[in-house]
């Protein structure tokens, strides 16, 4: 709105624009602002200011708003820190493996099926960006990376190369298996984190941008992994011989690797 005030438009035009403005604002923030009877500070300052702040915590009761002006900053519990530690560690290990699998698959698959080059490159690039995201998070939060790093490096490369040699369908079945496992794993993490955030919110704690961003990051990563799953199925992953055995074998391997990486 500040830009409108500075703008040289006459008052009539101003009004028209102000009338149009609400349709541009997300519904939630608008409805809360209109219905709120508590002294929400954002609403109190300027009720017409259509600033988009979906992250702002609305006090659940007038009493709470009166007593706790600033949300509590409590330290994370041991269980929460344990969870975050193993979550970041296992995610980093998973993305390392995914990057290496695609890296090993790409030359072999592309040599036989050049039309898959853009798809392989697209999936590889996304994995690389996930890997660097989690690398940065692991370093920032001082989490110990998995001790099995060299083992996963060798195993993931062997898996990628081996399935690629078995043909395009097997390579895609490998992607299908890995992404199914990783997708459901990320899903569990998101569920746990949302539960944690909800509990903290109920206790009136400040969640902090750190956790919010983490949930967003994991969600986005999960969506992209599941997109790879779709690509794999579109590219005849189901035609791999023997499909069920191969997929189940790789999935069991993934579960084992996740179990180990969460611990060491």
């Amino acid at each position: 709105m500040a830009t409108f005030r500075k703008s040289p438009f006459p008052a009539s035009q101003w009004l028209i624009r102000d009338f149009l403005a609400p349709s541009l604002i997300p519904r939630t923030s608008r409805t809360i602002r209109c219905l709120s009877t508590t002294s929400n500070s954002a609403a109190a300052v300027s009720p017409t200011e259509p600033s988009y702040e979906p992250q702002r915590r609305i006090p659940s009761s007038g009493e709470e708003a009166a007593t706790s002006s600033a949300p509590l900053k409590k330290s994370l519990t041991q269980a929460q820190r344990d969870f975050l530690t193993s979550a970041l560690r296992v995610n980093q290990a998973g993305e390392l493996a995914a990057t290496l699998i695609y890296k090993a698959q790409t030359p072999v698959v592309v040599a036989a099926h050049p039309h898959l080059r853009p798809l392989m490159k697209h999936m590889y690039d996304q994995e690389v960006s996930h890997f660097s995201t989690f690398n940065a998070l692991v370093a920032k939060h001082r989490v110990r990376p998995t001790a099995m790093y060299p083992v996963w490096t060798v195993m993931a490369t062997a898996l990628g190369w081996g399935t690629a040699l078995m043909g395009r369908e097997a390579a895609m079945a490998c992607t299908e298996a890995v992404e199914t496992e990783i997708g459901s794993h990320y899903n569990e993490q998101v569920r746990y984190l949302l539960e944690m955030v909800e509990n903290m919110e109920r206790e009136g704690q400040d969640i902090g941008d750190e956790l919010k961003t983490l949930v967003e990051t994991i969600r986005r990563t999960r969506d992209e992994e599941l997109e790879h799953l779709d690509h794999a199925v579109e590219n005849d992953a189901k035609d791999a011989v023997p499909h069920t055995a191969l997929v189940e074998f790789i999935r069991a391997g993934c579960r084992g690797a996740i179990w180990v990486s969460e611990r060491v």
């Binding site: 409590k74 330290s75 344990d82 530690t85 969640i207 750190e210």
Partner: peptide
């Protein structure tokens, strides 16, 4: 060993006592 080994270090939340 675990309690003193590297755990998630938060910047938003104070470190536990």
């Amino acid at each position: 060993l675990i309690s003193s080994s590297r755990l998630y270090h938060s910047y938003d939340h104070p470190a536990p006592p």
